[in-house]
Design a protein around this nucleic acid. Structure first.
Length: 297
DNA sequence: AGCTACTCCTGGTAGC
DNA sequence: TGCTACCAGGAGTAGC
């Protein structure tokens, strides 16, 4: 599941390979992948009525998407939370969210098309940028106002502006710590894997109320979040079942460094107790019952 | 405000 | 073997 470290690796790969390239064409194989901002009411959360009216409109939407992209060159690639932002020469931005299984792959134009290819962008040097997404949850938006689009996201956990004081402020709410950290409006970039890993490293139980953490725990969590994200980036991201790949199709290595995620029943590396798995906010949640006490002791 | 439930999806797996 | 049923999970939304 691509989270901040995986997305960061994709962004770095794109930066290395496609800056300066011109998009000479785009092909859409799964309409719902494409979300123009003005089409936000026909996304995957809309109810039946709008969905039924969509087909004609979808055709127009993808045509507009292709036409508007053609001839624009890629001037920069940046990241905000888990969003990839391709900055284009005519003032547009292509925003990509990989969600669960999305991949951005750079291939020669004549390479065989993967079964789950949803979108391709033809570049001007006989290569293609391909959006491959098994589960079809990934989304791509074309907008001339990326800042407005991304305005609701919380702070970047690895930025200089994000300080221990900022962390402490975020925790002044009574929500449980795990769902709070997964909320992109609170803090941008964490997903299920890195939240479990950060909570373990900080010794904080996932069911604790955020505002029950004392100053030392808040600090520990701040440093744990930054540590696991940085390590994840350095290790090239986390790959399970080949779902995360970088732009040239390589897997990450961070799965080898995970302490609790997907380790239910196995001994804690720190104390030997069996790692537990519970469901919190509908998400599989892994923790050490000995190192992460619900009572905070 | 914050919780649950539901939706979007597919591949893998459990159970029969 | 072949079928059905269920599960995971990022994010948005509805309803309480």
């Amino acid at each position: 599941m691509p989270e901040l470290p995986e997305v960061e690796n994709v962004v770095r790969g794109l930066r290395e390979h496609i800056i300066g390239q011109t998009i000479s064409g785009a092909e859409v194989f799964w309409n719902r992948t494409v979300q123009m901002p003005e089409a936000s009411n026909d996304d995957d959360n809309s109810r039946g009525v709008i969905k039924e009216a969509a087909p004609t409109y979808q055709v127009d939407k993808t045509a507009r998407f292709r036409n508007r992209l053609r001839g624009q060159s890629i001037t920069a690639v940046t990241r905000r939370g888990k969003h990839i932002i391709l900055h284009l020469s005519e003032g547009d931005s292509l925003i990509v969210h990989l969600r669960m299984t999305g991949q951005m792959l750079i291939t020669p134009v004549d390479a065989p098309l993967h079964k789950h290819t949803r979108l391709t962008w033809k570049l001007d040097d006989n290569r293609e940028l391909r959006f491959v997404d098994q589960r079809k949850f990934g989304r791509v938006w074309l907008t001339d106002d990326p800042a407005a689009f991304l305005a609701k996201l919380g702070p970047e956990p690895l930025s200089d502006e994000f300080t221990p004081q900022e962390m402490a402020k975020l925790l002044q709410r009574k929500a449980r710590i795990k769902p709070l950290l997964l909320n992109q409006h609170v803090l941008a970039g964490l997903g299920n894997i890195y939240v479990d890993e950060a909570l373990f490293r900080a010794g904080v139980h996932p069911l604790r109320a955020a505002n029950s953490l004392d100053a030392a725990e808040s600090d520990a969590l701040y440093h744990a979040i930054r540590y696991v994200l940085r390590r994840g980036i350095e290790n090239g991201g986390t790959t399970f079942d080949g779902t995360y790949l970088n732009v040239i199709g390589e897997t990450g290595n961070h799965q080898e460094e995970l302490r609790v995620y997907k380790r239910a029943g196995e001994p804690c590396y720190r104390c030997g107790a069996a790692i537990e798995r519970i469901v919190v906010g509908g998400r599989g949640t892994h923790f050490c019952p000995q190192c992460q006490r619900e009572d905070g002791e």
